[in-house]
Nucleic acid binder design. Structure first.
Lengths: 350, 350
DNA sequence: CGCTGCCGGTAAACCGTTTTCAACCTCCTA
DNA sequence: TAGGAGGTTGAAAACGGTTTACCGGCAGCG
């Protein structure tokens, strides 16, 4: 008759104490044996491991977390989970993290400052080992981020970053992306290039405008104030801006839009009014949304490499926790954007 | 001179012991006071709460989890995070869960059976309070799911379910969705309707085929074997299938595709060969991918309501944990699909 | 022979809560 | 005055691991 009772019977979970009792050794020996500690003899280690295997022992990570103060979990804060770009980033993070034995907790802010503060608080609370953030549009103050740093929790930014806070960060080079896009248009022979810019209080849109200007300047092309539209990120705004452009006496021959969706608006206007793309007007967008490859003509656009950004920021995190909190240095990874060239900007026949 | 030392100084975390010491009461009293236990006098409760507030006390959830056996976390297992449909589902789950005070851990299987088993094991290990799964394409056996049930952890399926396992589940009615789509085509006056079906060993594609057949039968329309293509979910396959269809002597006047992407292939073929949509051939897709609204003509498609499915499955989970494990009953929620009608299927002028 | 060092292991503290079981005080009643 | 009853509180035992401190035995060495 078997009178050995398993501790964890109610939960169906075997504990190291069960194994210890069955082998008539102490729980600490079991713990060490399982972690491969060489202080335990090979013989004992093997015995323990075999029994653990047989009983399908699963360590209680919650107990481990409590004791070690580490949770093997990283928290993510993004504006929206279900945006193509962000879900790609998350995919990359999850992949990298899970390979390194980390779990991933996801939270979304819906661009709300309050939600961001709350999510950060909840993640600190959950004792995550690191927090990866793409900053919400509505973020006003940085106190919640400083809290994270003060607690010694690795904090990293991706895509939407805050310069004032010293952290590791991963983003694409928006300046260079814009430069590349405009340079491509110039190389194709377009000389009068309009720009749909985003709101200039946001970092990345300022940089995209800068890259646009730089490319023009470098090629000695004039800049026309009438060719630049701000706050232009919807399809409708893109449509209307294009309408205005086409009614100018000397109209441009190309548009570089800081977003795919307003580029789509432009293309719809052009098609509706019988203009040919790219002969009458070339269009380049930004973000390489899935629909850009599906449109007719295909929309040339800047691939932001969300997956790669995710892999990058997760790797940076892993790197950071290897170092002691003091020796920590904050790396900045800039990912080279890629211009995906499609028919909407190819003038020359090749 | 202040000689009170906080326990958690290294981590910057205040514990109930710190509060207890400062107020010269016991930790258990603090714990009870904070949880609003009426056994503690109003006066003491207020004192504790005020000090906790002042010190910005944050309970260590890991300790709570260990003690209570609950983690206030739910695990999600999906094939891919960065698929429009799934990221919508996840968005819905996160929203609902976080409102109820639950965190969400995400894992992806990449359609791999082994990954699914591993993820499930890791989630059990992390002591999640529930596991929500959309089954991987490669899943062969169900042992890992039974493990979850045996452990008493609530298991729920969404979208891709397994009939053999008794769980709560949320999905859309694929039969009805297909029926609606085909009925719509019939109502528009189309009489010869082809179908791009998916692989029939997968549940949902069988049902879509069924709905298609039912609608035809109901309207007394004949079914033509040549009009049905299996294993047809890529753009290229859609293109080729359409080519075959158009070369038939008596060709169909409409296509109902079980996926948007193969519908896109169809539309590309039609446009390239000068056929008009929907006059020469109407097309209806499935999934309502973002690009369907952007195409020209817009592609009529079935909206799967990912967000709603997410909300639904999370709500079902919350419902389930309210009940005792024995009294548990498994609800099945079928979400009514919606047909989003666009130009690609509108024959009549309105 | 006495000292040192290593090997293999144990006992107990610890992580921060929750919860069980009492204890204590005061007031009230028999 | 003894004995509840009721209202507050505390000590200690969990939860399941990890880690520190320590111990007995044995080999090596001067």
């Amino acid at each position: 008759m078997n009178f050995i009772r398993l501790f964890g019977m109610k939960t169906g979970q075997v504990t190291i104490h069960d194994i210890a009792r069955m082998l008539d050794i102490s729980a600490s020996t079991v713990s060490r044996a399982l972690s491969g500690n060489t202080r335990i003899s090979r013989a004992t280690r093997d015995k323990v491991k075999m029994l653990a295997e047989k009983l399908n022992y699963q360590p209680n990570v919650v107990a481990t977390n409590l004791r070690t103060g580490k949770s093997k979990t990283i928290g993510i804060v993004v504006p929206h989970i279900n945006r193509n770009f962000f879900s790609n980033v998350i995919g990359g993070i999850e992949q990298t993290a899970s390979n390194a034995g980390y779990r991933v907790i996801i939270t979304q802010t819906h661009e709300l400052y309050e939600k961001e503060v709350e999510n950060i608080r909840a993640l600190i609370n959950a004792r995550v080992d690191g927090i990866l953030v793409s900053v919400s549009g509505g973020t006003k103050t940085y106190d919640h981020f400083n809290q994270v740093k003060k607690r010694g929790i690795p904090l990293l930014f991706f895509d939407r970053t805050i310069d004032e806070i010293e952290t590791g960060r991963v983003m694409i080079d928006d300046f260079r992306a814009a430069y590349k896009a405009v340079k491509h248009l110039i190389d194709e022979g377009f000389k009068h290039i309009a720009h749909f810019a985003g709101p200039q209080h946001i970092n990345i849109y300022r940089k995209r405008l800068g890259g646009y200007q730089e490319a023009l300047k470098e090629s000695g092309l004039s800049m026309n104030e009438d060719f630049i539209f701000f706050d232009n990120l919807t399809e409708e705004k893109g449509w209307k801006a294009t309408e205005k452009l086409m009614k100018l006496k000397n109209r441009p021959d190309a548009i570089f839009s800081a977003s795919d969706i307003s580029a789509l608006g432009a293309i719809k206007y052009l098609k509706e009014h019988g203009f040919r793309i790219p002969e009458d007007m070339a269009v380049v967008g930004f973000a390489n949304e899935p629909f850009t490859s599906i449109m007719d003509p295909g929309l040339t656009s800047v691939e932001q490499k969300g997956y790669l950004i995710g892999v990058g920021v997760a790797s940076l995190f892993l790197e950071e926790i290897m170092q002691s909190a003091e020796a920590r240095q904050f790396r900045k990874v800039i990912i080279e954007p890629e211009l995906i060239i499609r028919k909407s900007s190819l003038k020359k026949s090749r």
